[in-house]
Amino acid sequence: MSRTPQEIFQSYVHAGAMTRNADALAECFTEDGVFEAPLMPAGAAFPRRLEGRAEIRAAMAAYYERQATGDGRAPNVERSAYVLHTTADPDVFIAEIDTVFDGDDGEEDRAVSLVQIVRVRDGRIARLRDYFSPDLMD
């Protein structure tokens, strides 16, 4: 039985943004899956393009480890939202995402909007293109 776009997306968000579990995130992808952040400049801390489950696992584990020394703020699930859009191609869906991070004492909340285009195969992500402002990953 094939998973729905909703199920695939929820697994991906839980593994990545919510728990920062590189192993679980990599398992959301096909063995030859591709994760892309096309707007990221070359050499940025956040990877621009990862090919294959093993590379996704290793690179995201390293990225999450570097982030562990940062502010470590998690998204405010109650205030964040997303809408999934299906397309004429049943293997492609688009995620329109608005994530809110609570501000620290006296800081304003931080809202992040982005779009992801997801191509699936056999219930896993075959290609994910993540479009967001690179300065959000500083």
Rank of each mutant, 00 (worst) to 15 (best):
M1N: 11
M1C: 06
P5Q: 01
Q6R: 14
E7F: 02
F9A: 10
F9S: 05
Q10V: 04
Y12W: 14
V13L: 13
H14D: 11
A15F: 06
T19P: 04
T19C: 11
R20G: 01
N21Y: 08
D23I: 11
C28W: 02
C28V: 01
E31R: 12
D32T: 09
D32P: 06
E36C: 07
P38F: 05
L39I: 06
P41M: 04
P41I: 07
A42I: 05
A42W: 00
A42D: 13
G43Y: 08
A45D: 12
F46R: 03
P47L: 02
R49P: 02
E51R: 14
I56F: 02
I56S: 00
I56H: 01
R57H: 15
A59K: 06
A61L: 02
A62K: 10
Y63M: 14
Y64P: 00
E65P: 00
R66S: 14
G70C: 01
D71F: 07
D71R: 04
P75N: 10
P75H: 07
N76M: 05
V77M: 09
R79G: 01
R79M: 06
Y82V: 02
V83C: 14
V83I: 11
L84R: 12
H85A: 13
H85T: 06
H85I: 05
T87Y: 13
V92C: 08
V92H: 07
V100N: 05
G103W: 09
D104L: 12
E107K: 13
E107Q: 15
E108C: 02
E108H: 10
E108I: 02
R110Y: 11
L114V: 06
I117E: 06
I117D: 01
R119M: 09
R121L: 07
R121M: 08
D122N: 15
A126S: 11
D130N: 13
Y131R: 04
P134A: 01
L136H: 08
L136R: 14
M137S: 15
M137E: 12
D138A: 14
